[in-house]
Structures are given as structure tokens and as C-alpha cells.
Design a protein around this nucleic acid. Structure first.
Lengths: 226, 226
DNA sequence: CGGTTGGTTGATTATTTTCAATGACGGTGG
DNA sequence: CCACCGTCATTGAAAATAATCAACCAACCG
């Protein structure tokens, strides 16, 4: 049973089979997989919970985060459609996952039995997801450890615009300022101020809704982002 | 060829075969693997270089880091004996690796051909290393994004004392203050001051060499680290 | 010995946080 | 339909933390 999984899926990935850019996650049209919808801010799983499943985002956005005992929060990643999250080495989840917006997820049982047979595509995708997660984490550590507030916001806007299907420089921010702050290692106030300042400097444009951003000068943002 | 690799090694890991604590990396005594020694501060590979190999630390310490165009540096991890590093998804290394101290490495060819046959242990170890890397990265993002200088130093000392074989609360710091600073997202001066302050507060003790640290009050440090 | 490197300490500055208040928006219920 | 309430975002002023600039010290090395 494990034979089929491993044989079909993982070796090519380890061998360097990943294309340079993130490969689109194509779910083989095998047996239907359980799905579930979550309301905005609904919990998907919590730190310490038993690791029974992992997930693929079908639509919507998910945040995974850790909390300090006094409530300080760090959002380590936002997961967009196609992303896999919730894969753990140990028996317990080491972070929380919550829906940022109304979200639909595909749920995968952790046991390989469920993957056995012909679904090597999922196994391959899992390893690919881990690698991409690690790469993002490394970039994010650089951001958190060494970049200024301005640079962080610029980096974030750019990264999001590249991940979101949104056409051109206009992106719809799915998350609140607080979520941005907890992802970027800043306070809400600093995020708000910095965004405003980038707008005053003409690098971005904010319609009154404040949840849409137009990247007016991507080159300058890229330069800022480092 | 990939069959043997995949079959022997990866599936159990994905299936949740990892014990809760980090499994010791046992290298099967298969065919001898190339090894090499590096002097302190010697480069192992650089960002952008072609990904041909990955490595296991045999002895010594390695740092992997990224640089910003203006020279700011973020050390994303220190790798201790037994650790695997340098595994990449893409064709190029995305960070630099340098020896911190005199170091000895085992060198693994990236192609699965070299792993074929009976060495599933290495393949398993690679996936385990990625998972542990991701877990460490998540903890480190919390540190970089949300902890104070004092908390960062305390966390670092504790984490190091748990990873180093060093008996009791005494640890030998393999890296310079500058390296610590670039890992913790601080400046050298802040690291130095904070370490001194922790000593004055009786939480740690520093022999005049300044490269040894005795954890005087681990409980208090743990509380501080969050 | 002189010179270099790594570490520490001090004074000052800068950036970000904290505390506080206000404004905008959306939903709800009278 | 509209007033009210709660949430989210913004802005301002003050405070705090860490960065920067600058010396200084000790150890190590040729």
C-alpha cells in the first residue's frame, strides 16, 4: 500500500522534479475527497490537536499562526487556493489554522492508506508544498529579522500580487490590518501608517474601501522590498 | 531505481512515522559517501549556485543565510552534527552556506540514482529534515516577529542547550556575537548588552572567555522565552 | 610588541510601540 | 428607513526598545 504511494509520487520530487516556478496543484480526478466550508474566522484546527488530516485550499484564504502565552500572535503564512497546509511531522498540530474569509477546503486523511493506489499526485504535491513552505519561511525570516516597516509592507504587497490571480497591479486584500500586522511582525498602527505613507509617496493607491490596493509603481516597490 | 528509494524510505515518514522528538539521524552503513572538511568561515555553497548536492553535518557547525543587496544578513539556521541542509526544490541554491567552525560534512549527490538500492534511510532522513526545518522556521518566525531582545536571547540559549550534546546547563557557543545577532534579528551591540544583562540578573553565567554560557536558572529562562 | 579581531560599554538617535481618540462602515432592530 | 452599536482603520502624542555612532578593552597572532 505504501509502495504504490511512494513509488508513484515522491521520488521524482526529491530527485529535483520540481519546475522552477510553483507547479499548479492538479488533483487527479480519483475518488471524491471530503470537502467542507468554513465561515470567516472559523477555526480549522488548533495547536495541540491530534493530527488527523491535512488540507488543500479550494477557495478562500486560511491563516496558520502560533500564539504566545500572553496573546502575542505570529501568522506564519496565508494559504491561498491550491495551497496545501496542515502537514505535520508529529502527532499534534503545532499551530492554529483559521479561515480568513469564507473558505472551502479539501480534506485529506493523514494515513497513507487513503492515498494508496493511484494518487501519487497528492503525495508529490505534499512534498512540494513542504519545500515551498520552507522557502517562503526563509524569505519571511529575512523580512522579520532585517527589514524596516516600509520594506515589509512593500514585500508583502508584491508577494501577494504575485500569488493572487488578480490581474495587473490591483489586489484585493483578503485579510484585516491586524492579520497583516501579525504576519509582518508589526502593530496595526504601524501597518496603517506605513500603508498611508506609501500611498502619499505614490507607490500604491488605495480606493476608499481600504481593502483594495493598486500597485502604482511596482519597480519602486521591488527596489524597496530588496 | 526510484522505486527502491521511494519504497524504502519516504512513505512511512509521510504516513506519520516520525516519533514526537527529533529522531536521531542514523546513516545506514552503505557505500562510503564523499566527505570534506571546511575551515571556519569557509563557503560551502552560495546563493544562485547550481544545486548539485546536499549535506549532512558530521562535525562542526554550519550557518545558512540570505543577504540583502545592502549587506544586511539573516542567518536562518545553524546546523549541528546530524543535521541535513542544502536540500532545495529548484535548480539553484536560494541561500548561502558557510562553516561556522572547522567542519566536516558528508556530501550527497542530489540525483536519486546515487541513493538507489538500499539507502532508504537517507531519503527518509531528508524528508524528516525538511519537516524539522519547517518547524524550526515557524518557531523562529515567532521569535523574530514577536519577541523582545531579552526573550530572543533566552530562547536561543535554551534551544541551543537542547540541541547540543553539552551536559547540564553549560553550553559552548560555536558562533560569534555577530552570527547570533544576524540569526536573532538584532545588532551585535544589543546581543552583547542583553547577554550581559541576563548575567547581571543571575539567569546565566559567563566565564571570561565569553564563549561559554552556563544556564543558571533554566526555569526562569524558559518562562522568559515564552 | 604592534596590529587586528571580537566583544563590551556609553551616549545619542531613530524607529516602532503604546496609549488614546476619532472616523468610517455595515449590520441590526426599532 | 434610520439611529445605534460594534468592528476596523486611521491618526496623534508620548514612551520604549533597539539601532547607530563611537570608544575602549582583551585576546590572539604574526
Amino acid at each position: 500500500m505504501q509502495t504504490a504511494l511512494a513509488n508513484a509520487g515522491l521520488a521524482p520530487v526529491l530527485a529535483g522534479g520540481l519546475p522552477g516556478s510553483a507547479p499548479p496543484i492538479r488533483r487527479a480526478e480519483t475518488r471524491a475527497e471530503p470537502r467542507r466550508s468554513y465561515a470567516a474566522d472559523e477555526e480549522i484546527f488548533a495547536e495541540g490537536e491530534r493530527t488527523a488530516f491535512f488540507y488543500t485550499v479550494v477557495s478562500g484564504v486560511v491563516r496558520t499562526c502560533k500564539l504566545l502565552s500572553d496573546g502575542r500572535r505570529q501568522i506564519d503564512a496565508f494559504h491561498l487556493p491550491g495551497d496545501i497546509f496542515g502537514v505535520e511531522a508529529g502527532p499534534e498540530h503545532r499551530f492554529n489554522a483559521e479561515a480568513v474569509t469564507e473558505t472551502r477546503l479539501a480534506i485529506h486523511r493523514r494515513e497513507p492508506r487513503a492515498l494508496a493506489g493511484d494518487d501519487g499526485a497528492l503525495a508529490r504535491a505534499v512534498v512540494a508544498a513542504m519545500m515551498r513552505g520552507l522557502e517562503r519561511a526563509q524569505d519571511h525570516m529575512m523580512l522579520l529579522g532585517r527589514k524596516s516597516a516600509r520594506e515589509r509592507i512593500a514585500s508583502f504587497m508584491l508577494a501577494l500580487s504575485e500569488r493572487l490571480p488578480g490581474q495587473g497591479g490591483a489586489i484585493e486584500l483578503p485579510m484585516s490590518r491586524t492579520d497583516m500586522a501579525d504576519h509582518l511582525g508589526l502593530t496595526v498602527e504601524t501597518v496603517s501608517r506605513t500603508v498611508t505613507q506609501l500611498e502619499r509617496d505614490g507607490l500604491i493607491e488605495l480606493p476608499p474601501s481600504r481593502r483594495t490596493v493598486v500597485l502604482r509603481h511596482p519597480a519602486a516597490l521591488r527596489h524597496l522590498a530588496g
